[in-house]
Design a protein around this nucleic acid. Structure first.
Length: 661
RNA sequence: GCGCCCAUAGCUCAGCUGGAUAGAGCGUCAGACUACGAAUCUGCAGGCCGGGGGUUCGAAUCCCUCUGGGCGCACCA
């Protein structure tokens, strides 16, 4: 909190104390201070409406007048430290106008002195936050729906870390379930083109998956076979498992216990039959499909700058699913209904199904296990699932089950280790849901794969770059040799920002023209703004850019630098526009906090667009080149501060920064 | 049928823990490059905030209801 807001907080605390003899917390007082919608209403304001509950009597206008009179006296007394130039009353508001010069100096100093760390927070007691995101299904291409989870999850991870918390980024792969029975069935029943399989395994697997889905509509033996093969797989995998108690007791058991390796597995036309007939053969098929998919995912993640701390999979939780079901049945928390095992959750009508009547596990039962084993591994304070809103029911069941486990912990007496971790989870699961992407299709009408998506955007960026070469516009641009890499960054920026610019919960209607637009409220607009700042700084002051370290050392930075900005009063003076920029810079930390509190990266997207727009307007309307040093200097500080803040936001939003484009 | 989410300018969206005059971008139209990068900027037009009711000094924001749309609702994930 800056000195200006702090002095208002103290003021509010003082007047409430005098009026009501009651203490108001700093946080509560800060909430009473608003940023007015328009500059003409000042820089901070206090609305009298809120003061009724603090013992102020009368209509809002009267209360405002009372507060106004006290404020005048109160801030008159501290005039040497004058933080406010003017205090006004308008309707029911008391408006405070900051001393612009002081505000500018302090705000910019905060940014420049912290540099690349500006806004980073330190927590005395950081939270341990597990963020589960992306979580694609194996053997299906990485689609755009997964991209939304990936981008939001990665951005939230960045934001939590930036705010000083400890984050574990988990990719929970959909590597289990009846779908694998189907995939193995398809692989065994249909002819497989092995030369194609060796070249592009994911595509071949996807083809098999699509084909069996279609065929099982007319041939019901396929589904039976798939279920049988899945049961075989699950039985094989759980035969030599450890007990969950043993697993949870191993200290630091954070290691992924499912082996990703698949190198030893050689498959061809000739030996395919052997894989299909034996238990171990089918297990190896599963391992192969899984391993190939993970390699593909990792390649994609790397290309768009995403990384995880841990890869987990449903399979490793499936290991403990039947035992967990047993525990819940014995303790009377779960019951049997129509042959399946269910738990009734308060407030949720649909019973939570944790085991099928054939005894195999379900998504929900595996998620119960996962939440418990993660508690043992990480002792999380919060576990965030970044998953589409269509799974709301699933997560309300999951949360509800852990409420039951906490309230009925005494009933889980036969397994104290499970009990210990399971009863800690209530209230810590957060479903960060997001809306669907509507109307998503290729121009041909099929599912869009992420690869195509970024490729289309990059291609368009490349065309644009080449047009710019042809026009020879702007000699601060890039070298022709950099075209490919810059175009890729622009493409990524466009695609990522498209998923982060709207509020999570709104369904976004997909449209190629929007994604492939690089103008207006887009990622490339933000990237362009930074490039432009770089170019401007280079022209204005080549030395300071070469020696950025000296520039931000603030050796020569002083309040008087802003005299020339705010002491003039010509009609066309730029000080109002500069001041707007500085105010926007000062809101950065508020934006980060809000993004964190709401788990909503789009707060930062809006912030960045606003800051960029202010800069671009300023840039267009006031020319700096050719002005004298004293004129340029304070403005250069401000511009450099914009760059620092903007780069920080882009990093938080997973958008590549481009030095020149 | 039950539950959850959504409805703001032609289009895509902000604004929603109630507060000052509902804002951007795109698109349309009219402008600005022999001057710091035109992926930019300036300006015009465009709104009973889906309809109705309620709470309140005050409602796009909270509650109820209707309409229209999306999603989910036990052996898929």
């Amino acid at each position: 909190m800056d000195v200006f807001k702090r002095s208002l907080v103290l003021f509010i605390q003082k007047i409430v104390k005098e009026k009501n003899n009651a203490a108001v917390s700093e946080k509560e007082a800060a909430k009473l201070i608003k940023n007015p919608p328009d500059n003409s209403f000042g820089d901070y304001s206090i609305a009298s409406y809120y003061f009724g509950k603090y013992g102020f009597k009368g209509i809002p206008g009267d209360i405002a007048e009372e507060i106004f009179r006290i404020a005048l006296l109160s801030f008159e007394k501290t005039k040497d430290a004058a933080v406010f130039d003017k205090i006004e009353m308008k309707d029911a508001y008391v408006n405070f106008f900051v001393n612009k010069k002081k505000f500018a100096y302090i705000t910019i100093e905060n940014v420049l002195s912290a540099g690349a760390d500006y806004g980073r927070e330190h927590q005395e007691k950081p939270l341990k936050v597990v963020i589960d995101f992306s979580s694609p299904n194996i053997a299906k291409p990485f689609g755009v729906g997964h991209l939304r989870s990936t981008v939001i999850g990665m951005s939230l991870s960045n934001i939590y870390e930036f705010c000083g918390h400890n984050v574990v980024k988990v990719n929970y792969l959909g590597d289990f379930g009846t779908q694998f029975g189907k995939l193995i069935t398809a692989f065994c029943r249909y002819d497989v083109d092995f030369s194609e399989f060796n070249k592009d395994p994911i595509n071949v697997l996807y083809g098999l998956y699509v084909r069996i889905h279609k065929d099982e509509q007319i041939d019901e033996t396929l589904e039976k076979e798939a279920k049988r093969r899945f049961k075989t797989l699950e039985n094989y995998m759980s035969r030599n498992r450890r007990s969950i108690e043993e697993y949870l007791c191993v200290p630091g058991n954070a290691k992924n216990n499912v082996d990703n390796g698949w190198e030893g597995i050689e498959i061809s036309e000739k030996n395919k039959g052997g894989f299909c007939e034996t238990e171990s053969g089918q297990y190896n098929l599963w391992k192969l499909f899984r391993g190939l998919s993970i390699d593909e995912f990792k390649r994609i993640y790397k290309s768009i700058g995403i990384e995880f701390d841990v890869y987990e999979g449903e399979a490793q939780s499936a290991e403990f699913a039947s035992e967990t079901t047993e525990i819940l049945l014995k303790s009377g928390i779960a019951s049997i209904s129509e042959g399946a095992v269910i738990i009734r959750v308060k407030g949720v009508k649909t019973p939570a199904l944790i085991a099928k009547s054939d005894g195999t596990s379900l998504y929900l039962s595996r998620d119960i296990v996962t939440a418990v084993t993660r508690m043992a591994k990480y002792s999380y304070d919060k576990m965030i699932y970044v998953v589409g809103s269509e799974q709301s029911l699933h997560f309300s069941q999951l949360s509800g089950i852990f409420r039951i486990l906490k309230d009925n912990a005494d009933k889980i007496s036969e397994n104290p280790v499970f009990k210990r971790y399971a009863s800690l989870i209530d209230g810590k699961i957060v479903h960060v849901k997001f809306g669907r992407i509507i109307g998503m299709s290729t121009r041909k009408g099929n599912l869009v794969f992420l690869n195509d998506y970024i490729e289309e955007a990059s291609l368009k960026a490349k065309e644009k770059l080449e047009d710019d070469f042809a026009e020879a516009s702007g000699n601060a641009g890039i070298n022709p040799g950099e075209t490919e890499s810059v175009a890729l960054k622009i493409g990524i920026g466009a695609v990522m920002f498209n998923d982060l610019k709207t509020r999570r919960t709104t369904d976004v209607s997909f449209n190629w023209d929007n994604v492939l637009s690089f103008e207006g409220q887009t990622g490339p607009y933000l990237q362009y703004t930074i490039s432009r700042i770089n170019s401007l700084m280079l022209r204005l002051s080549p030395d300071t850019v070469k020696k950025e370290r000296d520039f931000i050392s603030l050796n020569t930075y002083k309040p008087a630098d802003f005299d020339g900005v705010f002491n003039v009063s010509e009609k066309d003076a730029d000080f109002n526009d500069i001041f707007l920029i500085i105010k926007q810079i000062s809101y950065f930390k508020d934006a980060v906090d809000e993004a964190l509190n709401q788990n909503e990266p789009s707060v930062l997207s809006s912030y960045a667009l606003e800051l960029s727009a202010l800069f671009n307007k300023y840039y267009q309307n006031y020319r700096l080149l050719g002005k004298e040093h004293d004129y340029i200097k304070p403005r250069l500080y401000v511009i450099y501060a914009i760059k620092i803040v903007l780069m920080q936001v882009l990093r938080l939003l997973c958008i590549p920064v481009i030095e020149r484009m």
